[in-house]
């Protein structure tokens, strides 16, 4: 794993079109985070499955991925060997950071994995069901404090959507943003807040050991192996998925785009990738082509609406 960004671009530009393309994947986050892990898993699987002989990962951290996105859009134009990992968090970050570069400036290829939001309360909480929580929220929105990730992120958006669906003014929610999942989880476990919201994986161990009570998950259907209703079942039409995707550079020809899409499809269908998903506990939510484009457009517009409702975007 030699991280030679410029080297590989140069090599890529000079090399004759070969059967197996070399790729450089930008992980728009620090090493260790979700996007970085996704990028590095793609790297490993692509090389092991022979989809590409040489894959580099470069970290360009910052501002919810928008810095990496901006750099990628401007420096990789027309380069079919450049890829970037991204996700739903980017959609919100682009809006709250007023980023001049958006997902329209790159070529989204496919959604690869995703995670659903889970709503939990401490085991000692008097709230037993999602219904109880919504009741409390309706009675006094300020008295229900929600612990979750950064302001304007997936967790915050989900709470805004829940409030809206329950007929509560989304600007009145008492959302307490914590940095990183760990701190929020500590606040929930320590009974500092009413409820917690985050990706299910953050809470899984605590839910299984009984220290947290899982009230609902944000998927459309009940999830396999998770004993909890969906938010939808409680009568609130809220489905939130924190997905991760891979995108290619802007300005690609149709053939180039098709070649990248084919490689990514090969990746997503490979045994190595399925194995990786299992060990990392990621859901397989592969979605490509027009279906993904449509989903993406829907997510962007609904996110913009809810961020305006919460008051984070003017």
């Amino acid at each position: 794993m030699k991280q030679f960004f410029l080297a590989s671009i140069l090599a890529g530009a000079l090399a004759l079109p070969a059967v197996a393309a070399d790729y450089t994947i930008i992980a728009p986050a620090n090493p260790g985070g979700g996007w970085d892990q996704t990028a590095r898993s793609i790297q490993t699987v692509m090389q092991e499955e022979g989809i590409s002989s040489n894959v580099q990962v470069q970290n360009v951290p910052g501002a919810g991925g928008t810095i990496g996105l901006a750099q990628f859009a401007s420096q990789s134009k027309g380069n079919a060997n450049a890829l970037i990992v991204g996700g739903y968090v980017m959609v919100g970050a682009i809006l709250t950071n007023k980023s001049p570069v958006t997902l329209k400036d790159v070529t989204p290829i496919a959604r690869l994995t995703g995670e659903y939001e889970a709503i939990v309360v401490p085991a000692a909480s008097p709230l037993k069901t999602m219904g109880d929580l919504v009741e409390a929220l309706k009675k006094d929105p300020g008295a229900v404090s929600w612990a979750g990730g950064s302001a304007g992120g997936t967790d915050h958006i989900a709470v805004g959507l829940i409030a809206k669906a329950a007929g509560v003014d989304p600007t009145k929610i008492n959302y307490i943003a914590f940095s990183g999942g760990g701190e929020a989880l500590a606040a929930i476990l320590g009974n500092q807040v009413t409820a917690g919201i985050s990706g299910y994986g953050e809470f899984e161990a605590q839910v299984k050991s009984g220290t947290l009570r899982l009230l609902a998950v944000s998927s459309a259907e009940r999830l396999e192996g998770i004993d909890a209703p969906t938010i939808k079942e409680g009568g609130l039409d809220v489905v939130v998925e924190n997905w991760r995707m891979i995108a290619a550079a802007p300005g690609l020809s149709d053939e180039q785009k098709a070649a990248v899409s084919a490689d990514i499809e090969k990746l997503a269908k490979s045994a190595g990738w399925q194995e990786t998903l299992k060990t990392k506990g990621w859901q397989d939510t592969y979605l490509a082509g027009d279906a993904f484009a449509e989903q993406l457009a829907k997510d962007i517009s609904s996110t913009e609406t809810v961020l305006k409702d919460i008051g984070l975007v003017q």
């Binding site: 990183g180 999942g181 760990g182 701190e183 989880l185 500590a186 476990l189 161990a205 605590q206």
Partner: peptide
Amino acid sequence: LGLPTTATAA
């Protein structure tokens, strides 16, 4: 607890 509280821990 499975709580990563620092970057190193994460």
